[in-house]
Nucleic acid binder design. Structure first.
Lengths: 232, 232
DNA sequence: ACCTGAACACCGTTCAAGT
DNA sequence: ACCTGAACACCGTTCAAGT
């Protein structure tokens, strides 16, 4: 997928052209650019979700004719790819002086990852069908590095990385989707009761009413890290 | 969400009407019904994925006028809800005589769950935004029961259930989406190398070329179960 | 009770054309 | 080099109308 993403039209102008642009920038609408398109797409996605974004509405918001985007971008799919990877971009590893314990480092990395995705709830459900862009790969590399330095053997490393990835993705996607429908969760729990004796356990633990999402995430992550620690 | 799903028009006729139907059934097209709509939707989803299913094409395939579906079904979203829950329906608990060890039971249940979703690859990515239908709830209840009987305290049960759920969902969604793009995975791995020294760990372990999905799933699940076992 | 077509308000994308 | 409108082939859904 990453390979699909052709490099597009220009992209060199900013760097090679040291002279100031023709003043066009301060007046009214700045010119279209891939960057501006992606930034606006992220805004729209944040405000209205996946369903709210169409190429026509996006162009409109940019003050451009409906079809102008296609000179800067291949198609809608690419816009979503770029929006997703921008949001997942990895910023400044924590590098806070001395290396902390590996469990703390992993937990910090994954909690930051999850939080970043929850800040853009559309990203969680978009991710699975999209490319592994540089943002995602950077985070995976960091995770692998921590685990490797912590003593996980190379032969076990991929399984360890994917386990943690799976957990974070599952937790984040689940949380992002249930967030929108707390009322529905309550309704489902309600329905459990009326369904009689068929779900005694879920009814007893009130599974669908437990909304300490952050705590549950952290607890499950600890379970996983316990298992990994036992393996070394 | 489950609550949203109104019970629709009839649904009683099949049971209350013991006399044979007016011969309409053996000739040409059987009459429209919610069951037939959902069954055909599943067929189309299996064959062409989410993008291939529209209300118009679905009606066409059913030999019906474009708008006839709307008498049996509220809207497209409901069709997808119903299709998903049908596919996730839970069949016959393994009940093979004596209770096996709880780890084996959990692994069996979750592997069956994953396999069922992978048989309908669209289901994995559809699930997060959909209702918790009876099929899903049945499986969650079963999981909770096994864990509870294995000695997990009620106070830890919800976290344990969600951890396993998160893991299965993450693994299945990831697998279902990467399955379609093995070539892209290779391309991404390739790109890792050309990107120079920025991803030494991923390059060394060849993370993106490791496609022993089943083995990786099982290994990660073992890690999680180790962690749970340590907690009791 | 069940099905229908016309109509409305949208989509993504191509393409020939403008500047 | 960059932007545009018209056009094509689609969407989901409403509604008044048919049987």
């Amino acid at each position: 997928m990453a390979a699909k993403r052709g490099d597009g039209p220009k992209k060199q102008s900013k760097q090679t052209n040291a002279a100031p642009q023709p003043a066009q920038e301060q007046a009214g609408e700045p010119p279209l650019s891939r960057e501006r398109i992606v930034a606006t797409a992220v805004e729209m996605l944040d405000a209205e979700g996946t369903a709210g974004v169409s190429m026509r509405r996006l162009a409109d918001r940019l003050g451009a004719g409906a079809m102008s985007l296609y000179w800067h971008v291949d198609n809608k799919e690419q816009v979503l790819d770029l929006a997703l990877d921008q949001v997942l971009e990895y910023r400044a590893p924590q590098q806070a002086g001395e290396p902390r314990d590996w469990r703390g480092d992993v937990a910090h990395l994954l909690e930051d990852w999850r939080a970043g995705m929850l800040r853009h709830p559309w990203s969680a459900s978009l991710l699975p069908r999209r490319a592994l862009g540089p943002g995602i790969l950077g985070r995976l590399e960091l995770l692998g590095g921590i685990l490797s330095r912590a003593g996980v053997a190379d032969a076990d490393l991929n399984a360890a990385i994917w386990s943690l990835w799976n957990y974070v993705m599952g937790a984040t996607i689940t949380r992002a989707s249930f967030d929108l429908t707390d009322a529905d969760m309550a309704a489902a729990q309600q329905r459990l009761s009326t369904l009689g004796e068929r779900h005694p356990t879920l009814e007893r633990t009130r599974l669908l009413l437990d909304n300490d999402w952050d705590g549950t995430f952290r607890k499950g992550l600890d379970v996983l890290l316990d298992g990994l620690a036992a393996r070394k």
